[in-house]
Design a protein around this nucleic acid. Sequence first.
DNA 1: ACTTCCGATCCTTGA
DNA 2: TCAAGGATCGGAAGT
Lengths: 215, 215
Amino acid sequence: MAQTSEKPVTIIADSNEPPALLSRLRLIPGVHVELRELFAGDFIVGDGVAVERKSAQDFVNSIMDRRLFAQVAKMKGEFETVVLLVEGDISKSASDIAPVALTGALSWLAVIEKVSLISAGGGLGETAGALHRMAIHCQHGLGYEVPLRAGKPKELHTARQFFLEGLPGVGPGLARRLLAHFGTPSAVFSASEKELREVDGVGPGTAKKILEVLG
Amino acid sequence: MAQTSEKPVTIIADSNEPPALLSRLRLIPGVHVELRELFAGDFIVGDGVAVERKSAQDFVNSIMDRRLFAQVAKMKGEFETVVLLVEGDISKSASDIAPVALTGALSWLAVIEKVSLISAGGGLGETAGALHRMAIHCQHGLGYEVPLRAGKPKELHTARQFFLEGLPGVGPGLARRLLAHFGTPSAVFSASEKELREVDGVGPGTAKKILEVLG
DNA sequence: ACTTCCGATCCTTGA
DNA sequence: TCAAGGATCGGAAGT
């Protein structure tokens, strides 16, 4: 089972969405599309997560005639999370709007309404793909975890140094000095706060944080 | 509506931000820039609202080398609202990443992390303008002058898991199980090979490598 | 982010 | 009961 994408997801779509997009969605294995009359938004991709689909041109127009404000407010009233999926290049359609009005709208969306804007390049495939991915994330989570520490060395000494760099306040330099002073990571971990502070670059704050993380 | 805004706002900037951008900000009437060492993020434009500034290229790169996830996790730990301000055209820099990975990243930001992404076109002026607008929205858009202060510190548990991921053969999953089994990193480090192997996913090979690095 | 790959681990079989 | 097989999971590397 190599496929990430065969997990079953349900996407609720407003009945007014273009048939071409709907069938494009249904082509994706594992996707179940359900039609409904939605009061606000075009798609529901997860619990409390609504998506409004807009062409770049329509997005810009809706800023100018202030439709956007009302639409978003309505959606925010009904859903916890709202995503604006914009198809096409906004800057191409931005010629007929004051730049400040555009940045103003973007800022307002981000900072006041907490609405995310995803830009998706014109094709149906991209739109469908984005909806699918959002549905998966909402309904199944990532499906794996992202390793926070990439690029582990394999040679013993560098592996030890790298490992110690995971401690709060410890970078490459301090890691090396700790190793030089104590010999092994084990010895570092059994050191008292006082002993830790003997190492150059370890103050009270760092020592305390280290001990806290160690437990 | 007369002036766009001469209302006074304060923007806290990380001291590592380029001087050119900082002075560009200070040129804007009503903007007060305050320098600080920020633990996470590049700017604070309102109470609990942090902004991370990235070039489009850097954005794409940081997806590939996983830097972005660590950064966002850190910021979400400290601030309630996080905005990613991307300078330049992402699609231009997207050549060396699988398209599906890019949409995946955008979806992840929007739907899982609830982080807004604002695209701002390369110039300093645009970046400064966007920061200004966000500051105005935060500080005057709803309510009054706000005490600019960051929220809760990073979770202890996350720091511990991150730390354990530095061990060879230990990724997110195993790090979590180790913590669940032993309670603290300290307890893990004083375990014998036998005890280590009680944890699901730790066989002879992994146990040996772990003990070797610990010393 | 996603995918592919590889190795270690675990589980079932069958002697 | 234990050894050998294959299925499975999780980590590492690359796009």
